[in-house]
Simulated assay, not measured.
Amino acid sequence: MPDPAFPLIHWSDNGAELSAHWRSEAGVAPPRRVVLADDRTTADAAYRQASEGIALLWRGDFQNARQLLQAMARRIDRKRRKPPASPLDAFNAHRQAQAQRARTLGMLLIPLDAGYAIPLRRAPDVKAACQEVYGDADGPDGVTSVVSLRELLGLIGAHEWRKKGVEIAALGARIHPYYGVFSPVRGEYIELVARAPLPSSALAFDIGTGTGVLAAMLARRGLQRVIATDTDPRALACARENIGRLGLAGQVEVCEADLFPPGRAPLIVCNPPWLPARPSSPIERAVYDPDSRMLSGFLDGLAAHLEPGGEGWLILSDFAEHLGLRTREALQTMIDAAGLKVLGRDDIRPVHPKAADLSDPLHRARALEVTSLWRLGVK
């Protein structure tokens, strides 16, 4: 019986009906219509078929497949779109366009052997990258599988980031992100934690630790003990590896918990996803927080987990406010309803490249964005 975690994808080859396991970290269902493609396939033909929901299983040179994917992306990106009337319209149009782009480019497929070898000319060795994401190289039932080239290139890129790491200036070290775990490439929120006055050096909770970067920052600042929580298995493994690599395992405990660990602490830190919208894939969960569930959960539970006189640090961008997804008044209402008061706030402007990119469809909102560390206490 087929493993429901690995549905089958079917296609025909010279009259023979073939199938393989379908892999999709984004949870995309296997394409229903699949045709074979090779080096003779033109970019116009590939783009037309992909736009119609027809997947192309590549049988040619691997590097030519990469070039074809780039050519398809150029055809998508040069389509002119009507300027939106408001930032919220721009956001909705941008998400719709990104989703359509992902669906279309996801239609170019690559086969994988049971040991994660790509049976194509000039194909790279992707075994290590696939093992980090998919697990055991034998694969399900020891049979071949199929994956979108776009996802495979994402795995390869994530593997390189994991090896090389991201330099964190405030930490004076590198953090090595796993695939699907939010990479700390935006350093402003780390800078806020690095410079905020500590209410105590005894204990801190880091809620939703991700790569463990904020837990490491707190430990480097002299916190005797930090308990870092997350629910995602990859994030937990990633945080433990980073904490161990930095020699901070004696100070930082990484544990699985839905928001708060048991007990109370004089300092509780949380950097929730900044945009109250539904993620279109598991990988987007670090960016999108449906109905502000994590933000609400943190605020509503903070008072019960803070020691008397303690502080909760909420690190939050106001990007959602400039997009029309949440108002400042709504955030203040959430804080008040949780029995909390604002003790202070430290703001910082973003320095990432998109903040100055005039071609970005969300530039109007990005140009106004400010990231803040809200110091919260119990009323």
Rank of each mutant, 00 (worst) to 15 (best):
W313Q: 05
Q67R: 15
A102T: 12
A102P: 03
L8C: 08
V378K: 11
A170P: 15
G157V: 01
M1C: 12
E321D: 09
W22E: 01
R74Y: 03
V181K: 07
A137C: 11
K379D: 10
E241Q: 15
I76T: 10
S12M: 13
T209Q: 00
A228V: 13
A194N: 10
Q332W: 11
A365E: 10
V166W: 02
P261K: 12
E256W: 00
I54E: 10
D360P: 12
W22I: 05
P279T: 02
T231S: 11
E307N: 07
K164W: 00
F182K: 14
L68M: 05
E25V: 14
Q70H: 02
T211E: 00
L275V: 15
A303P: 01
L18Y: 05
G324Y: 06
A45W: 08
H363M: 09
S145H: 04
D232E: 05
R220A: 04
G222S: 08
V133N: 08
P83E: 07
A123H: 09
P124A: 00
L248N: 04
L343W: 01
L152Q: 01
A37W: 08
R162G: 14
A65T: 01
G344W: 00
M72N: 09
R326H: 01
G312Y: 09
P2A: 15
R240S: 08
L203T: 02
F182P: 09
P273C: 03
G250S: 03
D89A: 15
P199S: 08
A215P: 14
L248Q: 04
P276W: 00
V147L: 13
D113F: 03
A169I: 06
E253S: 13
A170I: 12
P350E: 06
A37P: 13
S359L: 12
A219R: 02
V181C: 08
D39N: 10
A320T: 09
A5C: 05
A355K: 13
L376F: 10
A29I: 02
N242H: 06
P290E: 03
G165L: 07
L203Q: 07
R162I: 12
E191R: 14
L36E: 09
A26F: 09
D318R: 02
E253W: 02
D89W: 00
A128T: 03
R186K: 12
L68T: 02
M334Y: 05
V34S: 14
G157N: 11
G339E: 03
I190H: 13
H352E: 13
R345V: 14
A128I: 00
P184Q: 01
G142P: 15
D347P: 11
I175D: 04
A26P: 04
L316I: 06
G106Q: 06
E369F: 00
